[in-house]
Computed example of a mutant assay.
Amino acid sequence: MKSISIDNMMKQKWIQWVLILLITLLWGYSWVLMKDALLYMGPFTFSALRFMTGAAAMMSIVWLLRVGRPPRHAIPHLIVVGILQTSIVFILVMYALKFIDAGKSSLLLYSMPLWSGLLAAVFLKERISPLRWGGVGLGVAGLLIVMGSDALSHQSADVIIGEILIILSAVSWGASNVYYRLKLSELSKLQVNAYQMLFGTVGIALVAWMAENGETVVWTVESIYYVLFTGVLASALCFTIWFMLLGNLDMIGATMPSLLVPVFGLFFGWLLLGEVLTVSVMIGSALILSGVFLSSIRK
């Protein structure tokens, strides 16, 4: 009965938008923390600690609610989603944050809805209306404007490589969304998030051990807060809600609102890090919001 009531609640439009606003706010704020965390530990070590914390929280919830283990045939698919969504995305993103500002990094990663929509059209046969294509176009145009028209002309090789890595992580995230819909959409959302995060954490931990084994981790109140916030709230909570949204909306409708994340990321960067909000940032943000609106329109 509980699962039925939750499913019915998730079909309510206003609940969907409240949840979208919640996760985009938390994810936008977490970019500031991810950047600052590099002052205390290596990028792979932080990702490993973050998702160990998130996986522990999720497995505890699964155990307390007696959700049970996923069926054996689903394990390989959960491993694939864990590698695509957790391991690849956050290994590449955290490494790239060494060279790129947090706001610009979030903008590049949240080109993900474009890749999700394109892959869904190919593999899920989802029809994308001209209006929604317009929303995708506006959102991507907003991202490009915020990045700046002179982005390529004044960047070092490290920055360009970092941007390519984040774009690859966006493609990987988009692929994981489509794979989830193909193979795991009937599974409990708590099971999916708990086990994909567990398997993805193993991949990140292996990379951290090989690349940063022996590097010092500076434990302070701030660094502990960064790990707990990004692990429990931005990972365990937000990705559970994310899978719920993927199970109740088409791919474009579910993923396009995530373009709000870089808008919040830029806002928190301005508020907490003193980053400058330029005219191009304001125009780009307006285009992103317009794209979210158009992509959310039904018939």
Rank of each mutant, 00 (worst) to 15 (best):
S3F: 14
I6L: 13
D7T: 12
M9K: 14
W14K: 09
V18K: 02
L19A: 10
L21N: 04
S30C: 06
L38T: 02
T45K: 07
A48F: 01
L49R: 00
R50F: 08
M52C: 15
T53K: 07
T53V: 10
I61R: 05
W63A: 15
L65T: 14
I75Q: 10
P76Y: 10
I79Q: 08
V80K: 08
L84Q: 08
I91S: 09
S105F: 07
S106C: 02
L107E: 04
L107Q: 08
S111K: 05
M112H: 14
L119I: 15
V122T: 14
K125C: 05
R127N: 14
I128E: 06
P130D: 01
G135V: 00
L138A: 11
G139K: 06
G142E: 11
I145K: 02
G148C: 11
H154K: 13
D158H: 10
I161Y: 01
E163H: 07
E163T: 03
S176Y: 08
Y179I: 08
Y180M: 05
L190G: 03
L198Q: 01
T201L: 02
T201K: 05
T201M: 03
A205H: 08
L206A: 12
A211R: 07
A211G: 01
N213Q: 13
T216D: 14
V217I: 15
E222Y: 10
S223C: 11
G231N: 04
A234F: 10
F239K: 10
F239R: 09
G247M: 05
A254H: 02
A254Y: 07
G269K: 02
E275N: 14
V276Q: 13
V279W: 11
S280I: 00
V281T: 08
V281N: 10
V281L: 11
A286Y: 09
L294E: 02
